[in-house]
Design a protein around this nucleic acid. Sequence first.
RNA 1: GGAGAGAUGGCAGAGUGGUCGAAUGCGGCGGUCUUGAAAACCGUUGACCAGCGAUGGUCCGGGGGUUCGAAUCCCUCUCUCUCCGCCA
Length: 426
Amino acid sequence: MIDRKTLRTETERVRAGMVRKGIDAPLDEWLSLDEEWRLLTTSLQEKEAASNRMSQEIGALFAQGKKDEAAAAREQAGSLKAEIAELTDKDRELRERLDELELQIPNLPHSSVIDGTSSDDNVEIRAWGEKPAAENTKPHWDIAEELSILDFARGAKIAGSGFIVFKGMGARLQRALISYMLDKHIKDHGYTEIYPPYLVNRESLIGTGQLPKFELDQYHMERDDLFLIATAEIPVTNLHRDEILDYFEVPKNYVAFSGCFRREAGAAGKDTRGLLRVHQFDKVEMVKFVAPENSYAELETLRENAEAVLQELGLHYRVVDICAGDMSFSNAKQYDLEVWAPGVGQYLEISSVSNFEDFQARRANIRYRPEASAKPQFVHTLNASGVACPRLMAALLETYRQEDGTVAVPEVLQSYMGTDLIIPPQ
RNA sequence: GGAGAGAUGGCAGAGUGGUCGAAUGCGGCGGUCUUGAAAACCGUUGACCAGCGAUGGUCCGGGGGUUCGAAUCCCUCUCUCUCCGCCA
């Protein structure tokens, strides 16, 4: 959510931000209803004040034993009460509508965000490493078949397309990647590990911005009105929903492994082969709760933490500055990390590094005290994948496939894998 | 799933219809004392909304109701705890 005062007083800046993001939101309707509500609430408050005064007087009259006067006053109060009831209903109606509209207004892009309308306008900031030679490699789905480590057909049989079975060294590689990444962020980068619930309630999804706008993208358990998480960002950010953190608790840095579940409702037929786009995948996610003045420095740290994984795995990747039109609804600033997959000849988005500023914190009501007895204020939240497993595995298999069909295991994974080589079955 | 108990400020914990936004303790902040600190003592200390402000309003798990008036009575939902049942 954007601060109401900002919506009122800096309307044109808000409008400009919406235009840059290419998102049409009901700002004008919000503004006019807000004005109506403020007028109404003022007169309601006056009536409530009068009613409060009257009730006190009645109480005093009773205390003095003036029964008749009290009874007369009571009748007067009755008519006030009806007026208040009517105004209260209207007040609530307006407020509900305002909340509804407010939740549809996107976060504004930070001033450093470049203009653009689609991913074509994103700008590569820099690349790390060299593109590996492509002669010994092939798409990871072919490598996986040679090695017998992924089973797409059986995944489809037991759940549907986009659900993958990992087998043998494939399953072990997945587990190795998860453990390695968690350990890296815990030991080297100082994050606290969280293992969150995979099902969350509506409030949580509103807090991080998936609802109300993106309900159709979520898997929903109707009977219990619970949602499968699309990312650990959702439960981890909501850890501190409706809380006031103490000054010494901020910054908080969490890292969480979780399964992620996405319907990919609008992406049918896109990147359907192999591991490129699946309904269920594993991911290690970092989430930060920080003081507002530090959030842009923290964004860079977060990006470096995510990059460290790719560097240690020796994978070529690039850092992309996301343009306003390609950014997500809740974001103020976003970098993507894209890893090179030589077998499919594509850069694959493997991490989104985002600063939400106070947008999520307002929705989820996450505040902190800057000093011991200072007034609470909203934190800034950030998150980054650190990183997503399937595409990482795809890039890894394609990068490290050798001429003889084996896949070399990067050094940092060898102790987790128990081997330095993945060999095709005899 | 069944039965019972409970949910109050940062924390603990009083308060069962009328100055209760809420006693008290702890914690926090400021001060006195002290070379300094601790202890002791004194003071202070919830959040949100409307308003330029004075001020006013709302909030005692959420929602609804009764009443001139609700933390307090009623209904309902959620959560926590105890016991029973079922179960990985």
